[in-house]
Design a binder for these strands. Structure first.
Lengths: 152, 152
DNA sequence: CACTCTCTGTGGATGCCATCGATCTGAGCC
DNA sequence: GGCTCAGATCGATGGCATCCACAGAGAGTG
């Protein structure tokens, strides 16, 4: 992870579809060299993948909610995690410090679907209670923060 | 937005670096047809961009926190939004229903940096109080949920 | 110093891909 | 039937990904 790697990571966070040739021009190396560096970043786990950023409402996911979960005393967090993992609506899942063990970001199409999700969560073994907050609007999301030296 | 468009969106959410030729094979069209469809998805705002998914800790952002903000009565939300927007640590920002007007996801390198961020937030005009919860670990994040008919 | 090993880069070759323009096809409509 | 438009295919061409052989810088060792 030298300065060139950081530049590559930054460039790919901004636009994951840049060609290797373009990346090479930006960092001042040859295309094969960039190809090899990016391959190493991928296989070492620094770059986990490449995702299209899709407007959720345009694919029928207009409702965003954040849900905190309080565990029963004595509940097994690993079991609960597996129960959460199979719910496709849960886009992100954090294990938290504090009374609420998990914080979920869920995305559904309608409030009715959100209600169903909350009911399902409350029925999940180990869940003592849930607390749901609805996002009225997403101002921004997953904004990459610049890191390392400026590219070039 | 027909079934083929949904398949393309799904494929690109899974791997944004797929070539047009590969996408074409997957959905059963020619490469130029796919090229045009993806171009329209981009210009219509369905696809907002393509991002490399980078392990945050590998670029020195090992601390994730969720911060709720209570506004002063009479504070201007738009002004506050602009104050929040310039803070690079804030990766996501939601305008919420409830007592806390904003919910932020912030990513910093150390707890000391988090402390500085919280101090800065509390000094921001319009902020009545903040509530910070620290993520001990991220179980998963921005997992794309499958949508539309299976590709092929 | 010189030898060598390793890592990482460059340059060239080759086959695939992106992309443009021309043409074709089918649905809807008069 | 025939017009028209949207959206597909086909063919060509220039650029890109990717493989390979080889070169140069640095570290470790006699």
């Amino acid at each position: 992870m030298d300065a060139i790697d950081l530049s590559l990571v930054d460039l790919l966070r901004g636009n994951a579809r840049l060609s290797y040739a373009e990346l090479a021009r930006q960092v001042g190396l040859s295309a094969p060299a960039v190809h090899e560096r990016v391959g190493k970043l991928e296989s070492s786990g620094v770059v986990r993948g490449y995702r299209a950023d899709v407007a959720p409402e345009s694919i029928g996911l207009g409702v965003t909610a954040l849900i905190g979960i309080v565990e029963d005393s004595g509940a097994d967090s690993d079991d609960m995690l597996e129960s959460l993992r199979v719910l496709p609506e849960i886009e992100s899942c954090y294990f938290m410090a504090g009374v609420e063990s998990f914080l979920l970001k869920a995305r559904v199409g309608t409030i009715a679907e959100l209600e169903q999700l909350i009911v399902r969560l409350n029925r999940t073994p180990g869940v003592a209670s849930t607390r749901t907050a609805i996002a009225l609007s997403t101002k921004w999301e997953n904004r990459p923060q610049p890191v390392g030296p400026p590219a070039g």
